[in-house]
Amino acid sequence: MASRKTPEFSASSMADIAFLLLIFFLVTTTMDVDTGISRKLPPPLDPNVKPPDVKKRNICKILVNSHDMLLINGKPGELSDLKQETKEFLSNPNNLPNLPEKKIKNIEGLGEIPVSLGIISLKNDRGTSYNMYIQVQNELTAAVNELRDELSMQKFGVRFSKLTDDIKIKAIQKAVPVSISEAEPENIGDN
């Protein structure tokens, strides 16, 4: 009964070796992709140049104090209302006189379109928690993203995040700019 063919080598240890490697990678792996909220910082202020005058109606002041409480345009507000208020401020759907002006701009890919001149001025205390600051930034970004989505749906029929054409993306970005201005840091109150 002696067989001529080469004896089959046992492959069962192969699984052990592979398991060993697998467990090594399982342990060392970190699946997190780096995600974050992108912002552009303004260049340092030139002390000789006066900041441009902005009409009062074009500014929405958001203050966050050291107790993580919000003041939206002089009124105490909640984080949950911030997105809606920002959207209303930036879009001014009924062209109210106390909300920002719009300027007709010619944008490639969209044609003539009214662009809001509204600026959100964000000011925080040194004692504000980072978490609160991010939540506020998040709500503001959400408001801008929703406005972009709406415009994109209206003009191109797809959501902004689903747009693939670079010209269209640029056009929407120009039509709904992220106009968040962060005040020069000041120490308001202790801690």
């Binding site: 997190d32 780096d34 995600t35 974050g36 909220i37 992108s38 912002r39 552009k40 910082l41 303004p42 260049p43 340092p44 991010i134 930034q137 998040n138």
Partner: peptide, 15 residues
Amino acid sequence: LRKVGAFKISYSTRK
């Protein structure tokens, strides 16, 4: 960062 001209920043957050 403003002083040194690194204007592009990203606040790292989890989804």
